[in-house]
């Protein structure tokens, strides 16, 4: 179970993480804890899957290239094709959605050619067309995820 201190760690440090030599000590100071407690709590939150990491979200297309891809997979093949798709290191999100186009995934790579090559490879290996829907414009200011605890 998450306690109040965990919730603050999750809610207040999704952006503007301190760029100072000892950032966890700074967090600890703001939360009134020891640095070791902050580190232990973050490790526990990572182990429990509540956080994926402390890290950076890069602005799409400023570093490398990416796209959202979609496929209409026959239901009986979905599991095996999803596994094939997830195995690419370039694929970072892969979801089944309730639509005729039932497999949706994000491909990120250093350049547009590498992204295209992954899509072509998946299409060639599965015999299923892959829809390529690259980002054209981003309208959202990303301050992290607004968690409502109720």
């Amino acid at each position: 179970m998450l306690d109040a201190a965990d919730r603050r760690l999750l809610a207040e440090f999704q952006h503007h993480f301190p760029l100072v030599p000892e950032p966890y000590a700074e967090l600890a100071g703001r939360l009134g804890m020891d640095e070791s407690e902050v580190l232990e709590r973050l490790a526990a939150l990572k182990a429990s899957g509540h956080i994926s990491r402390v890290g950076a979200v890069f602005t799409p297309h400023k570093v490398g290239a990416s796209t959202l891809a979609a496929m209409a997979v026959p239901p009986e093949w979905l599991e095996s094709i999803a596994e094939l798709v997830s195995a690419y290191p370039e694929v970072n999100h892969n979801y089944q959605r309730d639509h005729r186009l039932n497999l949706w995934f994000v491909v990120a790579a250093p350049g547009r050619d590498e992204v295209r090559a992954v899509l072509d490879d998946i299409s060639a290996r599965t015999g299923i067309a892959v829809l390529d829907l690259p980002l054209l414009e981003d309208f959202h200011i990303d301050l992290g995820f607004d968690i409502r605890w109720s």
Binding site: F13, Q14, H15, F17, G49, R53, G55, A56, V63, F145
Partner: peptide, 17 residues
């Protein structure tokens, strides 16, 4: 500063929350 990093911090997993 140059907007290459959009955000630096704790990255949460929605489902687990």
């Amino acid at each position: 500063r140059d907007g290459i990093i959009r955000r630096l911090g704790v990255i949460v997993r929605h489902h687990e929350l």
